[in-house]
Structure formats: C-alpha cells, structure tokens
Design a protein around this nucleic acid. Sequence first.
DNA 1: TTGAAAGCGATACCAG
DNA 2: CTGGTATCGCTTTCAA
Lengths: 320, 320
Amino acid sequence: MTVREIARLAGVSVATVSRVYNGVGQVAPGTRQKVLDAIEATGYRPDPLGQALAAGRYGAVGLVFPGLSGPYFAELIQGFESEAVRCRSSVHILCTHMRDDSESQVVEMARRVDGVAVLGGTVADEAVAKLSGLVPTVVMAGAAQGTATSIRTENRGAMAELTTHLLVRHGLRKLVFVGAPEGSPDVYERYTGFTEAHRDLGLSPAEPLRVTMESHDGVRAADRLLGNGTRPDAMVCANDELAFGALIAALGRGLRVPQDVVLTGFDDAPMAALVTPPLTTVRQPVRELAARAAAMLLATGREGDVLLPTDMIVRASCGC
Amino acid sequence: MTVREIARLAGVSVATVSRVYNGVGQVAPGTRQKVLDAIEATGYRPDPLGQALAAGRYGAVGLVFPGLSGPYFAELIQGFESEAVRCRSSVHILCTHMRDDSESQVVEMARRVDGVAVLGGTVADEAVAKLSGLVPTVVMAGAAQGTATSIRTENRGAMAELTTHLLVRHGLRKLVFVGAPEGSPDVYERYTGFTEAHRDLGLSPAEPLRVTMESHDGVRAADRLLGNGTRPDAMVCANDELAFGALIAALGRGLRVPQDVVLTGFDDAPMAALVTPPLTTVRQPVRELAARAAAMLLATGREGDVLLPTDMIVRASCGC
DNA sequence: TTGAAAGCGATACCAG
DNA sequence: CTGGTATCGCTTTCAA
C-alpha cells in the first residue's frame, strides 16, 4: 500500500491523501471522507522510510551504552524506551563494549536517528563532541562535551554523606571503596565523595579496590578483602550489585553483616531492601534520568544540563 | 554530502559515484580515482535512508522482549546486538512490558526493519503469526507461529534430568518449583520437565510457586516457603536469579544450604559458580541463541527451527 | 479545494 | 566505460 494506491482508490491525488492523513491543509469534507474510506479499507499506514526521507527526520533515537548487566541498565533502557515510544519514536541501541571501532559505529548510528543519548564513559570525550556536531546529543550520567547537554544524578554529595555516616556515626576507620573510578564518570564522582568525606575529617582514604560493576565482581572483591587478617571495617561498594555479591561471599564465609563487616551499595535496587541485612545505599532515579534524556532529545526546546537529586537510604547493613 | 555533490566534485555522474562506492560494475581506473579522492576529501558516506529507500531494505533488525533485568536479558541483548552489528545492521528494540497496545507497536516496528526477533511469550501467538506475514520473524525461546521460525534451548529434558537428580540421587521428596509456567514458554517447558521427572517415578509434583523471574522475587519466595514449619526439601528455581534471591534469604534466616534446604537454578549465570555454596543449575547458550536469531534474520537462506543443547551443571547447592 | 510536479538520497537499468 | 533517468514512498510548494 502506497500513497499512490490510496490516491487511485479514492480518486484523488497523492497530495490530497497526504493532506488528509496528516490533517494539514484544507480538504473538502466529501473528499476527505473518500480518502479516509480508502485508508480504512486497506489499513494503509505511510511508510516511515518515505516520511523520513521527505521530512529529513528519522522518527528514531539512539541509545549508546558499554554493555549491560544488572538492574541499572535494565532501568536505564526501559526508562529511555518508554519515553521514546510515548513520543512515537523508535529506539536504536548500540553496545560498544569491548569494541575498538565504537566511535565510527556511534557516528554511523547518528546518521539514522534524530538524536543520541550516550551513557557517560562509553565513548571518548572527543567522540561525544564530534557526535554533538552531527545530531542532538545528551550524555547521561557524565559530563557534556561539545554542544551536547548532560543529565546526571548527584553522586558526589550522596557518597560523601554516606561515607561520613560510616566514619562519624559508626566510628569506622578502615573503609575500602569497591569500584574503578576510571571506569565511568559516575564511579569517579562517587569515589570523589568518598575521599572528600575522609579529608574533611582529616583522614586519608585507602586506595579503591578496582573492579567492574557486576555482582560476581563483588564476590571476588569480598574474597580478596575478607580472606586475610587485614579485613576492612566496611566495603563501600560503587553499586548495589557489588554489594550483593559481597554480601553473599561474606555470609558464605560465616561472617556477620554488619557486625563483622559493614557493607553499603549505591542505586537502591529492588533487592536492596529485601536482603538480610537490608542494604544501606543511595537511591538514584535512573529511570527518570533515562526518560528525561529521551525527552531532551525529542523535545523542541533544548534544556540545559540537568542534575537529579539522590537520597541516602539508611538500612541495617551499615550497623544502624 | 550527497551523491550529487560527490559527482559534481569528481566531474562524473551519480551513477559512477554509486558504482565506485559499491564496487560494482566497470569503472576506468582514472575515473575511479577521481571519485575516491572526492569521497576521501569530503568524508562522504551514503545516507542509509536513501539506500534503504532504493534497495527496499532497512539495514536494521528488531528485538522485542517484555521488559528486562538480570543476566539473561543482558546476554540476550548483547548476543543479538553483536551479531547484528557484525552483519552491519542496526538494532531496534521494543519493550512491551505492561503495555496493552504492544501488538500494534510490534507491527509498527516491523515496518522499519528487515526482520524481527521476538522473545517467546512477549506478544500473543496471533500477533506473531501476523508479524511473520509482514517480515521475516524468529521466535526466541518459544514456539514458531505462522511462517516464523524458532530457536530455543532444550529446557524440558534438562529440567527433567535435574529434577531426577534431586529425586533419585539425593532422595529428596518435597520439591517446589519456583516460577510461573504461564509466564513464558521457557518456564512452561521447565515445569513440564519437573513434573515429568516426578511422574516417571510415580510421584506427584507439588503446585509451582508462581512468581516472576527477578532475584527479589526469589527472596519473597524463600520467605514464603522457608518461614513456616512445612519447609520443602528443595526449591527448584526457574532461573538463577530466583535462586540467588532464595539463597540470600535462606542464609539470612540462618538456614544452611544444602543441609537445611536444597536450591537449584537455571541459566548458569556468572555468579552461579561463585556463590557459597556454588549453585547447581543448567547452562544454556543464551548469547548464542540470540546471535543465531539475528543471523537467521539477516541470512539469505532460511534455516528451519533450531534447538540448542543445554547442560546440567552439578555443583554443591543440591547436596553434591 | 485540488492536482501536478519537484524534491529527499541513493541505486540500477538502458543507451550510447 | 559512462551518463541520463526512472524508481523507491512521501511531503510540500506552486498553480490552477
């Protein structure tokens, strides 16, 4: 079914079909009805390709992230997708993980979409800057580059608050940050909050235990940290997944949480409240972050950089 | 940059530019070089939209799934995406979760891609049949409908083997299947294997504990099952995530696994080998499943239905 | 109010 | 070996 078919069926020109379908311009009621009947009878829907070519718009937005695992990415993708679909836009995804030619692929993607949202730390800053010259771009959970805008959550302050809580309220001293600050802007900011809290109290923070962000990495981290005699007072994990892994490993060794070792996370994943002991963590609105990123891409008026608030959630795993 | 620009720059016709760029037909070396120079100088890359319109192909494939979380979906998406990108195709995603108009959205997606892979149980069978009339379709982890093909893993046999192991090798009797058979073809098949194993031994299986598939559901399931006096011998979880949640909940109550309660999973997620005790489960090639689904969509010769093998992985959580 | 026709960007056939 | 031109499906002037 093409416009021409419908035009033939309704005995009008393609221009009129287009006008009726899109509800623009003036069309006589009788003519309009003939066209609507033809559309109804055939179930005609315009080919998105033709529309895109004519309009110079693609009706699609892109989402770029490194790889994915755990509830964080699940929320991110679903938040983004929901908003995009609501705006009648389709969603392209690109996982760059472990691929060396990711920059060219991102640029390639940019040619097929009306805007791209990229997760901070996924591609090089220069690539983001370049991308932003091609198509509206928003960096999620990272810093804007070029003409891109950014949307992020308050990581640093929340982690500083959490760390201070451990240091002051619980009097802990041997804290180890679990996560790689170099891995992503998010983790970098969290680690910055961690060190700031120490410095503010005249303490010097330990080196972070650099691991990736999946729960099995938390298991390994706990095995390294809790195995020998120099066990830390607390493992301050860069996300909840790590904390869950660490929790399983700690319990598996017969250690008690929080008595023998304190554990904290970040994200407030659904399971955080359900594990024993419930996890002290920081809630961040990931779904909203992604949804707003999509909205920023699709909206006409461009918003500036956005910072979403986070909340420290104190449960029992810190000793409270 | 359009073909016309390049043609003008190189002093040739658009036809020649197209020939050079696509490496088809005969072009004189000198002419070829002029075109290549112009392409090089401008960084020209043909607009995918124009190509799609001319070729009647979109250079994109679609992936449809309910919602997502956990390692299963991570593997699925990444496997699909990797193969699609390898075949120079872009990836559209659609999450139907909790959306009532998913059928029309799937059809809408079908109009923008060269093929659609849908996860079994995501949309109604009739919708899949309809879809398969529109565009090449493959059902992952589910039954084919209409002209769609399917690719799945051997769920039933593996679960029957695992259940038999529990029943015969460990002499357990009170087994509870955790998962909703109605939720997806995958879980249905697993439950079928579970019941078959019972019947083969003249036993009658208990009703399944119907829960969704995320780890926090495993926590809740364990709380329900392990709380009162009628604790089962084993929780046979429909996937590893549920088992992890159940493990955390069990350990949190001071129960020992496998002495007090046996736990098994399905998927062999990375963490399965790392938890304490290591999880007895079934390994299924999710990544390969998804990659082959993408390949089936993109390949010229259509494959028939595919069944991928699974492996029972016996670790310590079953009592071995 | 309507239609003819010019794009949008690329491919491919048919002459030359 | 090369160029002109029709074509893909749609939108949008411009005239009538």
